[in-house]
Amino acid sequence: NNDALSPAIRRLLAEWNLDASAIKGTGVGGRLTREDVEKHLAKA
C-alpha cells in the first residue's frame, strides 16, 4: 500500500524502478525503511 510509504521511500523506489511489494519492510508496522530498500538493491 503506497499510503504507508514516506515521500523519501516513494522517490527512492521510483528512482530505481522498484516495486514496493517485492521488498519486506522492517519498520514500524512493516513499513519500508531506507535500509530495507538499500539491502534489496545490494542483493540485486
Rank of each mutant, 00 (worst) to 15 (best):
D19P: 06
I9Y: 03
K39Q: 12
S6R: 03
L18T: 07
R10P: 01
G27S: 04
A22P: 04
K24F: 08
A8Y: 06
I9P: 00
N2S: 12
T33K: 05
P7R: 10
H40N: 03
L41R: 06
L5S: 04
A44V: 15
G30A: 04
G27L: 02
N1S: 13
V37F: 03
A4K: 13
A44C: 12
R11G: 08
G25K: 05
T26F: 03
D36V: 01
R34N: 11
A22S: 13
A42L: 11
A22N: 11
G27Y: 00
H40E: 07
G29T: 04
L13C: 13
D36I: 02
L18P: 05
E38S: 06
I9A: 03
G27E: 02
E38P: 01
I23Q: 01
D19V: 07
R31Q: 15
V28P: 15
P7S: 11
I23D: 02
G29N: 13
A8K: 06
A22Q: 14
K39H: 12
G29M: 08
R10A: 13
L12M: 11
P7I: 12
K39G: 09
N1K: 12
S6V: 05
V37G: 01
A14E: 15
N1E: 14
N1A: 14
L12T: 02
K24T: 14
A14L: 13
R31F: 07
R34Q: 14
D36L: 02
H40S: 05
N17M: 06
T33S: 06
H40P: 00
E35Q: 11
R34G: 05
K43Q: 12
G30Q: 04
G29V: 03
K24V: 15
K39S: 10
A20Q: 07
L18Q: 07
E35N: 09
A14D: 15
L5K: 02
E38D: 06
R31M: 15
A4R: 13
L5A: 05
L5D: 05
P7D: 15
L5Y: 07
A22W: 09
D19L: 08
T26Y: 01
D3N: 11
K39M: 12
I9R: 00
N2E: 13
D19Q: 06
A4W: 15
N1L: 13
K43M: 14
E38M: 15
G30M: 00
I23L: 06
K24G: 05
R34M: 15
T33G: 03
T26L: 05
N17K: 06
G27I: 03
V37K: 00
T33M: 05
K43H: 10
L5V: 10
G30K: 04
L13I: 07
P7M: 09
D3F: 02
D36E: 01
L13T: 01
R10V: 12
L32H: 01
L32Q: 01
A8I: 11
D3I: 10
A4Q: 14
D36K: 01
G25E: 02
L32N: 01
A22E: 15
A20R: 02
N17D: 15
L5P: 05
L41S: 03
A44P: 07
A44Y: 12
I9S: 01
N17L: 08
I23M: 05
L12D: 01
A14I: 11
N17V: 04
K43L: 12
E38F: 15
A22M: 14
N1V: 13
G25I: 05
A4H: 14
N2W: 05
K43S: 12
N17A: 07
I23G: 02
R10C: 15
G25Y: 00
K24P: 11
V37A: 02
K43W: 07
D3P: 10
T33I: 05
S6L: 07
T33H: 00
G25N: 03
A42V: 11
T26A: 03
S21F: 06
G27T: 02
T26V: 03
A20L: 09
N2A: 13
G30D: 05
I23P: 01
A44N: 12
N2M: 13
E15R: 06
I9N: 01
K24M: 13
R31Y: 07
E38I: 15
R11S: 11
V37L: 08
A20E: 14
L5Q: 08
A22T: 12
A42Q: 13
L5T: 06
H40V: 11
P7E: 15
S6A: 09
N17Y: 07
A14R: 08
L32W: 03
A20S: 08
V28T: 10
A42H: 09
A42D: 09
K43Y: 07
G25R: 05
N1I: 13
V28R: 09
L5N: 05
A8H: 09
L32F: 03
L18R: 01
P7F: 02
G30Y: 00
A44Q: 14
A8R: 06
A14P: 09
N1Y: 05
A20P: 13
L13G: 00
G27N: 03
N2D: 14
L5E: 07
L32A: 03
K24L: 12
N17F: 08
G27D: 04
A20K: 03
N2R: 11
A20T: 06
N17E: 15
D3R: 09
R11N: 12
L18D: 07
N1W: 04
R31L: 12
E38H: 08
T33Y: 00
I9H: 02
S21G: 10
D19K: 04
E35M: 11
D19G: 04
R11Q: 14
S21Q: 10
R31V: 14
D19E: 12
A20F: 07
H40Y: 15
R11I: 09
L12E: 01
R31I: 14
G25L: 03
D3M: 10
A20G: 08
R11L: 10
N17S: 06
K43P: 05
P7Q: 13
L18V: 14
G29W: 01
G29Y: 01
P7Y: 01
L12Y: 03
A4T: 13
L5H: 06
G25Q: 04
R11M: 10
A8V: 10
G30S: 04
E35F: 07
